[in-house]
């Protein structure tokens, strides 16, 4: 049989726990317990939120906090980073997030014949997908999505805060007509309070999308936002690259990276 053997244990891939790399003087960093990767939860690249730690909801999946990933975040967090570098390095993270998100889609066993004439028992992708970006910052993640899923359909949702009610309000949405039969990758780079993300999920549910078929993908999230979002929609899977320390009084993520859309398009 030619099915690839199970992977050997991979101790080397795992960087030392992030907390070890942090100097104690840093107060503005993720609580080390949040990012701790000492408990293996998943055979794949991502680590689910640490089950022994109750800070993160069960439906949240983070990328493995390796030194190379942290280096990417360090570049895009730096306010001195040029727009070109911001584009390039945020695209790298977005691709990793989309790759991770796709791993939550189902596959089926599939045998193929290789050029050497032998049969290979592999897997085939199953299920149609589409992307939905929350304007405007979510649009910045479309390119990364397309580099991983060629010719994927992408819908858009514009949600803004209604100043009179202080609630997020839907201004515009354009979605694929058959979206109800698809898995949806919902794109928004920052999850701060979770208000607009929850509004977007409401829109998708109204269109007939099943809650468990929604994958919400973001680069940085706040623990508060994650908790609010996941309590409201516990069956939506959240793929986040990094869980930051929290929100400041203006509801900006700390340490965060500023306004993603602004840095990506305007600076």
């Amino acid at each position: 049989m030619s099915f690839p053997p199970p992977p050997p244990p991979q101790p080397s891939i795992q960087q030392p726990p992030v907390s070890a790399n942090h100097s104690p003087t840093v107060s503005s960093k993720i609580p080390s317990s949040v990012m701790s990767s000492s408990v293996p939860t998943n055979e794949f690249a991502s680590t689910n939120s640490n089950p022994s730690n109750s800070t993160l909801p069960r439906s949240v999946y983070t990328l493995k906090p390796t030194a190379q990933l942290e280096a990417l975040y360090t570049i895009i967090r730096d306010k001195e980073t040029s727009r070109g570098d911001f584009l390039f390095y945020s695209d790298r993270i977005i691709r990793l997030l989309v790759e991770e998100g796709l791993n939550h889609l189902p596959v089926v066993n599939k045998s193929v014949v290789t050029p050497t004439g032998s049969t290979y028992a592999g897997v085939g992708f199953e299920g149609k997908i589409c992307g939905v970006s929350i304007l405007r910052a979510g649009e910045a993640m479309e390119q990364g999505l397309r580099e991983v899923c060629r010719s994927v359909r992408i819908g858009k949702i514009l949600i803004q805060r209604d100043e009179s009610t202080a609630l997020p309000r839907l201004f515009y949405s354009k979605l694929p007509s058959d979206i109800a039969s698809r898995y949806v990758l919902l794109l928004d780079p920052m999850l701060a309070t979770g208000g607009s993300a929850m509004k977007a999920v409401e829109v998708l549910l109204d269109e007939g999308v099943k809650e468990e078929r929604i994958l919400f993908i973001n680069l940085i999230s706040s623990p508060e936002g994650l908790n609010t979002f996941c309590n409201r929609f516990p069956r939506v899977k959240v793929i986040t690259g990094w869980v930051d320390q929290g929100l400041n009084e203006k509801a900006y993520i700390i340490p965060g990276l500023g306004d993603f859309g602004e840095r990506r398009y305007c600076e």
């Binding site: 840093v26 190379q68 306010k79 340490p255 990276l257």
Partner: peptide
Amino acid sequence: ENAMQFLPYCPHTVTTPVGVKTVGQKL
């Protein structure tokens, strides 16, 4: 992306646009 793990990294402090200093990593 996976092969990047073999490169050496060192701690690096940056200031984010929110005005917060944070220690990360750099190549």
